[in-house]
């Protein structure tokens, strides 16, 4: 069944320079394999389109049922240089939860 990622996971995002990090966390431990299978770095890169100009790297935290993504060159220069309303990437977490995943 295809569902939005928000039905099986929650998320938080933050910034470090021009890089956004997005942590996504499975609500239930049994859904963690679906996160690992469905939410790949390639899909995340495609999902954000023009917003992320650099590389996307994924890390796994099975102990927390979580994945951590680093989206490089995603804040228009980052910090004080950014001209974006979301200059700190606070809403990238919710944006990723729009992604459709197969459960």
């Amino acid at each position: 069944m295809k569902v939005p990622l928000s039905t099986i996971a929650h998320a938080r995002s933050g910034d470090k320079g021009d890089t956004v990090n997005i942590g996504i966390i499975a609500y239930r431990a049994e859904d963690y394999p679906a996160l690992v299978r469905e939410v790949t770095a390639e899909r995340v890169k495609a999902h954000f389109g023009d917003l992320c100009k650099g590389e996307v790297i994924r890390y796994e935290l099975p102990n927390l049922g979580a994945l951590n993504f680093l989206l490089h060159e995603a804040l228009g220069g980052g910090g004080t240089l950014s001209l974006r309303v979301d200059a700190q990437g606070k809403t990238f977490s919710a944006a990723l939860l729009r992604l459709e995943v197969q459960t």
């Binding site: 933050g14 990090n21 942590g23 966390i25």
Partner: peptide, 16 residues
């Protein structure tokens, strides 16, 4: 635990 997990992931780079 869910609330604490969100903060653990906040502004995290390489978790190891």
């Amino acid at each position: 635990c869910d609330v604490v997990k969100e903060q653990l992931l906040y502004e995290l780079g390489d978790p190891k």
